[in-house]
Simulated scan of single mutants.
Amino acid sequence: MIRAMIVDDDALVRLGLTDLLDSDENIEVVAQATDGLHAVELATAHHVDVALVDVRMPRMDGITATTRLRALPNPPKIITLTTFDLDEYVYNALAAGADGFLLKDTAPAEILRAVHLVASGSAMLHPTAARRLIDRYHRTTRPGSAEAQSHVAALTPREQDVLARLAEGDTNADIAQRLGMRESTVKSHVSRILTTLDVTNRVQAALLARDAGLTR
């Protein structure tokens, strides 16, 4: 069972997302927060696997909340869910440690899929936002290729193969099939990759891999 938290200052949005998530027999909404500060309080009091977090909220916005949530002893996976398809929001959310970024007009089935993917350790980005992030905003604001290359160079050749596939958005199952490995072995590689690259999730690892020129 995936324990979820909805973080949004709009009561109707919270209600709609709660109804959607509760329609999945493998997801349980255990908390609803009205802003980022409230989210941190609830995540401290409840075990939360995945939090869907709005960006623009009073008291504490979603970007700051993501940073605070990721710093908890048992941090939830985080999907930033917003009305605003702005590059800066996407990048800042991922830099803060979000595992996914979706627009609120995303199809309900895709939102449910995102929760399952993120809970399993994968990442989920709205396709348009992801492509623009990689092709334009990220490349112009964080060149850092030399530093990125030095981090990637610390990986074994096999780990670099896994990282290259991860940067293309492949799931662990996809990587296992493409590289002829067991899925459990892929998970072990991904865990070491995150540690070696000093990043908190697959999305940040993928961005660093692209900075290093490991993939396009």
Rank of each mutant, 00 (worst) to 15 (best):
E28D: 04
V30W: 12
V30A: 07
A31W: 00
A33M: 05
A33V: 02
L37K: 09
H38Q: 03
A39V: 08
A39I: 14
V40I: 09
E41G: 05
T44C: 09
T44M: 07
T44N: 14
H46C: 08
V48A: 02
D54S: 03
V55M: 09
M57E: 04
M57G: 09
M60Y: 01
D61Q: 04
D61T: 08
I63F: 09
T64A: 11
T66I: 02
T66A: 03
T67F: 08
R68A: 13
L69R: 13
L72Y: 01
L72H: 09
N74H: 13
P75E: 05
P76K: 05
K77M: 11
L81E: 01
T82P: 11
T83F: 11
T83S: 12
F84Q: 10
D85G: 14
D85F: 05
D87S: 14
N92P: 05
A93I: 08
L94H: 04
A95I: 10
A96K: 13
A98C: 08
D99E: 08
G100C: 11
L102W: 07
L103E: 07
L103A: 12
K104G: 13
P108G: 04
L117D: 11
A119C: 04
A119L: 07
S120G: 04
S120N: 13
G121E: 06
P127E: 08
L133G: 14
Y137E: 07
R139D: 14
T140C: 00
T140M: 12
T140S: 09
G144L: 10
S145R: 14
S145Q: 10
A146F: 01
H151D: 04
H151Y: 13
V152E: 02
A154R: 15
